[in-house]
C-alpha cells in the first residue's frame, strides 16, 4: 500500500459533487503532482486529502492508518503538513515566529528542526527577525513551506507553491522541494506550471472535472502526445 492512499474520493462543498471517484497516491519520499485545467478540482482534491472537505465516499489512509474521519488539525498531528496557496504566513510576525507557530503542536524541543529549515532556506536565516509580510513573494513561499516543515511532517502538501513568483524563483523552489523529498518526506502538490512540475514528479495526476484522466510517471506523461497536446500546450 502506498504511503498516502486517497482512493475513490467523492464529494464537494454543497449539494453538488466536485470530486468524482478521485484517487491520489504518493509513495514514501516521492513527489506526486496534480495538474489539470482550471476548475478541474485540483485544489479541492488536495483539500479533501487534508480533511477540509466532507467526503461522501472514499477513504484516506496515511502510512496504513485510516484518517478519513479526522479533522485537519488531527491530520497535522498524524504527520501531514499543508501549505495553502494564499495567506500562508503570519504577516506581522517575524520569520522565526512564523516557524515557531508552525511548531505550535510540538511539545519537544524544535530548535533542531528550525536549524534544518534555515539550512534548506538560508535566506530565511538572514531574515529571521524580519516580518514575513515584508518579504518578497518567493521568500514568503519559503516561509510558508518552512512553517509546514516545523511539525516534521511525513507528507507535505503544497497548493500551487509557485503561483505568482518569477521563473528563476520557481526553479529554485522546485530544487528545494526535491531536496525535501530526498530526506524521505512524501510530497503532494498542485501546480499550474504543469511542464516544470511534471519534470520533477515521480507520479503525475491529470484531473479533469474532478476525476482522474491520466495517471503515470511524470516523464511518461510528458512524453504522451495526447497529454502534451491537451494539457501542456503542445
Amino acid at each position: 500500500m502506498s504511503f498516502l492512499d486517497a482512493s475513490g474520493m467523492t464529494g464537494g462543498y454543497g449539494a453538488t459533487d466536485i470530486l468524482h471517484d478521485c484517487t491520489l497516491r504518493v509513495e514514501k519520499g516521492q513527489i506526486a503532482v496534480i495538474v489539470g485545467p482550471n476548475g478541474a478540482g485540483k485544489s479541492t482534491a488536495m483539500k479533501a486529502v487534508f480533511g477540509m472537505l466532507r467526503l461522501r465516499a472514499g477513504k484516506v489512509t496515511l502510512d496504513g492508518e485510516d484518517i478519513t474521519a479526522l479533522s485537519p488539525q488531527e491530520r497535522v498531528r498524524k504527520g501531514m503538513g499543508f501549505v495553502p496557496q494564499v495567506n500562508n504566513v503570519f504577516p506581522t510576525m517575524t520569520v522565526e515566529e512564523n516557524l515557531e507557530m508552525g511548531a505550535f503542536i510540538r511539545e519537544d524541543d524544535f530548535t533542531g528542526t528550525m536549524e534544518q529549515v534555515f539550512e534548506l532556506f538560508p535566506i530565511l536565516c538572514d531574515k529571521r527577525r524580519q516580518n514575513a509580510g515584508e518579504l518578497s513573494g518567493g521568500q514568503r513561499q519559503q516561509v510558508a513551506v518552512g512553517r509546514a516543515l516545523m511539525t516534521k511532517p511525513k507528507l507535505l502538501m503544497l497548493d500551487e507553491p509557485t503561483a505568482g513568483v518569477s521563473p528563476i524563483v520557481m526553479d529554485e523552489l522546485f530544487d528545494r522541494i526535491i531536496e525535501i523529498a530526498r530526506t524521505g518526506i512524501s510530497i503532494l502538490m498542485v501546480e499550474q506550471n504543469a511542464r516544470q512540475a511534471l519534470e520533477i514528479a515521480d507520479t503525475g495526476y491529470v484531473l479533469v472535472q474532478g476525476a482522474n484522466r491520466y495517471t503515470d510517471t511524470g516523464a511518461a506523461l510528458m512524453a504522451d502526445p495526447e497529454v502534451r497536446r491537451t494539457f501542456l500546450g503542445g
Binding site: 488539525q73 497535522v76 495553502p84 504566513v89 503570519f90 515566529e97 515557531e100 507557530m101 505550535f104
Partner: peptide
C-alpha cells in the same frame, strides 16, 4: 510567551493559526 504569540498569530491569520493547531 507562547500564548501571546499564538494570540498574535490568531489575529494575523485565523485560518493558518487553526491549521497550526492553535
Amino acid at each position: 510567551t507562547r500564548t501571546g504569540k499564538s494570540m498574535r498569530a490568531f489575529s494575523d491569520n485565523e485560518d493558518l493559526a487553526l491549521l497550526s493547531g492553535i
